[in-house]
């Protein structure tokens, strides 16, 4: 327990196997409060599975997963974990397409999630201000009444980041946030994530090395479900094993 103290996310010796295939093999990672961590690694390294474990979608076969130094995540379901303050953005942007952009954010907004809370919910002035604020941040204010289905790929990514912000989480798990974005959008996203990381912990999974460089955070390289190397981007990309297994010569 004490080891997990003062951490936002604490994974120790986590393993999970699917039909004998070890997707995660004795993985240990620590994320401190208001720290940004970038995770890189080849396909099949277990990045997404790791996120599945943290968010309660997959149960690990072994290992400890602690949130905020005290909560054991392995026993909880997705909704409880989300309400604890872990937000997740998916590799493939998934927004609620038959809802308007405004409604997407309204649903994500941090509020009691009970059935009757939702049934009798009426947006307060504060809520409206907050949603407007977020829409402004993700640059979708002018399209707030359109269906999310009509957004471009990059805009959906931003809407999803906006939904993350609306959830007001302590820890953000962001899976490939800049896929399908233009260079300037990518830059903006990096800026936004750095801004967010001032007050929250952020874990970013990304293949785009220039984006990772812009994040300027600590980097972990995963391979075959375990940590291959750790440090600054320069340290990691200079690591011969990483070059061998991931970056290539």
């Amino acid at each position: 327990m004490s080891k997990a103290q003062d951490t936002m996310l604490y994974l120790d010796g986590v393993s999970v196997a699917f039909d004998g295939f070890k997707a995660i093999n004795n993985l240990s990672i620590i994320v401190r409060p208001t720290e940004m961590l970038a995770i890189i690694g080849p396909n099949g390294a277990g990045k997404t599975t790791m996120m599945d474990i943290i968010t309660g979608k997959t149960r690990p076969d072994a290992g400890e997963v602690m949130f905020d130094g005290r909560t054991d995540l392995t026993k909880l379901d997705e909704a409880t974990i989300a309400n604890l303050g872990i937000g997740r953005k998916f590799q493939k942007p998934t927004v609620f397409e038959s809802h308007t952009i405004w409604d997407n954010l309204e649903m994500a907004l941090k509020k009691p999630r009970g059935i009757f809370n939702a049934l009798f919910y009426t947006a307060s002035d504060d809520d409206i201000a907050r949603i407007t604020d977020i829409l402004d941040t993700v640059r979708l204010l002018h399209r707030k009444d359109e269906f999310a289905a009509n957004l471009s790929h990059g805009q959906k990514q931003w809407l999803e980041i906006g939904m993350l912000l609306a959830q007001d989480p302590k820890l953000l798990l962001v899976d490939e946030p800049v896929a399908g974005m233009t260079d300037s959008e990518t830059e903006e996203t990096a800026k936004l994530l750095r801004e967010i990381a001032k007050t929250r912990s952020v874990v970013v999974v990304e293949h785009d090395m220039s984006f990772v460089r812009e994040l300027g955070s600590r980097v972990v390289c995963l391979a075959e479900g375990a940590v291959l190397a750790e440090g600054t981007l320069d340290q990691v990309s200079a690591n011969p094993v990483v070059i061998e297994r991931y970056l290539g010569r």
Partner: peptide
């Protein structure tokens, strides 16, 4: 027309996504 109704539609269209923003899909 309530937020709950919107969550219901969200469950219909993307059940696990709804779970990840903290709604208990089973109760909805």
């Amino acid at each position: 027309n309530s937020k709950l109704g919107k969550v219901m539609v969200a469950v219909r269209d993307a059940e696990s996504r709804t779970r990840f923003i903290g709604y208990r899909v089973e109760y909805v």
